[in-house]
Amino acid sequence: MLIDLVILFALTLSSLWTVMTRSLLRSAIGLALTSALLTILMFRLNSTLAAVFELSVCAGLISVLFVSTISLTHPLTREEIIKHMRERRARFWALPFIIIIAGIVLSLLHIKPQLLLPSPEMEKDVRNVMWNLRDIDLLGQIIILLTGAFGVLILFKERIKK
């Protein structure tokens, strides 16, 4: 539990750094670090296959996508950076207060979660669940992947020159 707590604190700090840092590139790296820490937590909670997906897709592919997008956009000028820094400080001062208020409100709600589902013995093998019990999800995944592929094709298509 102590190791989990340390990783959870590191996860929160890295996500805060991701949000607060000025540089977009550092932000993308912070997101990859957050994904990597989440992967460790998933391994510790016995979700190994999902952890592998998280590490390869979220910490790898999505970070590469963000870095590529940042490289395609032009950097800010010095004057813009100074102006931007002042604005950012003013925008984020309320964040710690909102976190504290959210914590107090949730603690006052006295939520009692009912997470029990029937027959966990049927769902021991993730392959069985994915292919037999949740096969409609796979269909959804294929449709979403195709939507993404076609969406990107349409977005990146070059304008025809007359």
Binding site: M42, L45, N46, S47, L49, A50, F53, E54, L117, E123, K124, D125, V126, N128, V129, M130, L133, R134, D137, G140, Q141
Partner: peptide
Amino acid sequence: EALAQSLVIT
């Protein structure tokens, strides 16, 4: 865990 993993992969 298996059900949760399949949801997470989706």
